[in-house]
């Protein structure tokens, strides 16, 4: 009720008017008050395409609008998801975890987490200790060098990293490839695979690392592979698979594809844009190419 209406009713009582204020029907069409629980309305929501597209992605499509703005609910959801992403970026790979995973921990030239975020160049090179460890302990002249790394999401690395690594090694061995000593890299960028692979004299280096978190998804892993890893390889010489997580490609499927990709690289003696993917049998078929199951956005906030 408006301040004025309340004040006038109070004044009526004071002046001895007992009857309630006459509720004259307003001559206007009734206007619905803003709903407390916002169901975004508007053209976008009403379109069949947007509605169906929204079923197949967790991306922000078909969220509707209120006026020219997002609904409060959408904004809150966005902020919650962004917080998840920030937390994933801020998380660090712990020494304890490396020990429990049973993997030797190699460090890049990065000194601390903030430097890791600000200096990608340092995250692409190994520190002296790591180089010495690899020279002393790693298997040489292997077909595939598997590397697990934190990348931009240590959460993802510590989550499904070991599972993906395990599947990948098993799949490579099943294809008869010689697999190098599995290692874990901290403060690692993708290109760190070049130096590790070069030191191990691997034909193919494969780094599995946490990918830059998206909204509400801090658990995604990406895999990058390069043939004849050498420091200075560029991204055109790499192949990669992204979105390896429960809602995207499952680790088991990804491992199968990666192993076949590695085999294909060794057969064709190249990787990246020059690699003829059509000549690698079974690559496209793994996991199927059909539409994914309808996806449901995980709700992080509820607006009452």
């Amino acid at each position: 009720m408006s301040h004025t209406r309340r004040m006038v009713e109070e004044l009526r009582r004071r002046l001895g008017e007992d009857a309630p204020m006459c509720q004259v029907q307003a001559p206007l069409e009734p206007i619905e008050p803003p709903p407390s629980r916002v169901i975004p309305r508007g053209a976008i929501r009403d379109e069949r395409f947007a509605r169906e597209a929204a079923q197949h992605t967790t991306a922000l499509v078909g969220v509707g609008r209120v006026g020219s703005r997002y609904a409060t609910e959408v904004v809150l959801q966005f902020q919650a998801e962004l917080a998840v992403a920030h937390a994933a970026v801020a998380a660090e790979l712990s020494e304890d975890w490396a020990e429990s995973a049973g993997l030797p921990l190699l460090r890049s030239r990065v000194g601390h987490h903030r430097e890791f975020l600000l200096r990608p160049d340092l995250g692409r090179r190994l520190d002296a200790q790591a180089v010495a460890w690899l020279e002393a302990n790693a298997r040489r002249d292997v077909d595939v060098q598997p590397i697990l790394a934190d990348g931009l999401s240590a959460v993802a690395c510590m989550g499904s990293g070991p599972e993906l690594m395990g599947h990948f090694i098993a799949q490579c061995e099943a294809l008869g490839l010689r697999v190098g000593t599995p290692v874990l890299a901290k403060y690692a960028r993708v290109w760190l695979q070049d130096e590790i692979g070069e030191l191990c004299r691997a034909k193919v280096a494969c780094i599995l690392l946490g990918e830059r978190p998206g909204l509400g998804t801090g658990d995604g892993l990406s895999a990058y592979m390069v043939y004849e890893p050498r420091v200075g390889r560029n991204d055109g010489e790499r192949n990669m698979i992204s979105n390896i997580h429960a809602r995207g490609m499952l680790p088991a499927d990804a491992a199968q594809r990666l192993a076949r990709l590695a085999q294909g690289m060794i057969q064709q003696r190249t990787s990246g844009v020059e690699l003829d993917l059509s000549a690698i049998p079974g690559l496209g078929g793994v996991g199927g190419t059909a539409l994914r199951e309808p996806q449901v956005r995980k709700r992080l906030v509820e607006v009452p």
Binding site: V8, L11, R12, L15, E17, A19, M21, V24, P27
Partner: peptide, 12 residues
Amino acid sequence: SRILEPIYPKVL
């Protein structure tokens, strides 16, 4: 008519 009854505006 009583006092302090609302006179609703009419949007034209």
